[in-house]
Design a protein around this nucleic acid. Structure first.
Lengths: 105, 105
DNA sequence: TTCCTTTTTGGCAAAACAGCCAATTGATGT
DNA sequence: ACATCAATTGGCTGTTTTGCCAAAAAGGAA
C-alpha cells in the first residue's frame, strides 16, 4: 500500500466516520428533505443543543452538510444528495441480514 | 422520533461504523475484487494478524463480508457489491471538497 | 501424537468519541 | 447599554475503539 493510498483511505474514513452515528444518520435523513435549523433538529432528537451542534460540526467538517446563517439562526442542509443512495444500499444490507437471521432459526 | 425509528438508525449506524476505518475501507476495496485470506490481507496492510482478524470480524458481524473456510485458512469476500457504489459517492464528495478548498485559496 | 501453519480470542493500555453543563459568541430587539 | 434567543466552544467524565502481545483453537502433515 503506497503512501498516497493510505491518505486516500484515511480521507474516505473521515467521511464515513462522520456518518457513523445514529443521530447523524437521522440528521442526514431529515436534511435530505430540506434545510433545518439547529434547534429544529434538537427538538427532533431531544438531546442537548451542544450535542447537536457538535454532531453537525463533525458532519460539516467532513463535507456532508453545509451551513447557512439566517439572522439569529443557522440552517444546515445536505451537501450531496447522492449520499442518500448509500443509505438505500445500507437498507438492502439490513434486509439481507434479516433474511439470513430468519433462515438461521 | 418513534422507538422503531431509533432502532432503525442504530441498525444503520452499526453497519456504517463497521466501514468507518481506513483499514476496513481498504479491505472492502480489495474484497470487491475477489476473496482473500486473512494472511493475504495482513500482508497488504502490514499490521498484526490479530488486528486484521478483529477488523474482519467487525465487518462480518455487520454483514458486510462473509467468510469461508478452505482447509487451514479462512477466505473473506464482500457480501453486497452494491456497497462499493457508496464508495464511489464518497469519492465524489472528496473531490467536491477538494474543489471547494482550492476556491478558498 | 507432535509439529507447524493459520486464525481467533483475551487482556491490556492508549487514543478517540459521546453527551452533558457552563461559559462564550453572535445577532436582534428594547 | 442591556436583555434575549440561537448556536458554538471548553471542559469534564464515562464509554468505546484500536492495536499490540500472548495464548488458545483448528487444520494439515509427518
Amino acid at each position: 500500500m503506497t503512501n498516497s493510498d493510505k491518505k486516500k483511505y484515511r480521507l474516505r474514513a473521515e467521511i464515513v466516520k462522520a456518518m457513523a452515528h445514529p443521530t447523524r444518520l437521522f440528521f442526514m435523513n431529515e436534511l435530505a428533505k430540506g434545510k433545518q435549523s439547529v434547534n429544529a433538529l434538537r427538538e427532533m432528537v431531544g438531546c442537548d443543543i451542544s450535542t447537536v451542534s457538535k454532531h453537525l460540526s463533525v458532519m460539516k467538517k467532513a463535507g456532508i452538510v453545509v451551513d447557512e446563517k439566517v439572522g439569529n439562526q443557522v440552517f444546515y442542509s445536505l451537501k450531496l444528495p447522492c449520499i442518500m443512495s448509500f443509505v438505500a444500499c445500507i437498507e438492502t444490507l439490513i434486509k439481507e441480514n434479516a433474511v439470513e437471521n430468519i433462515s438461521c432459526l
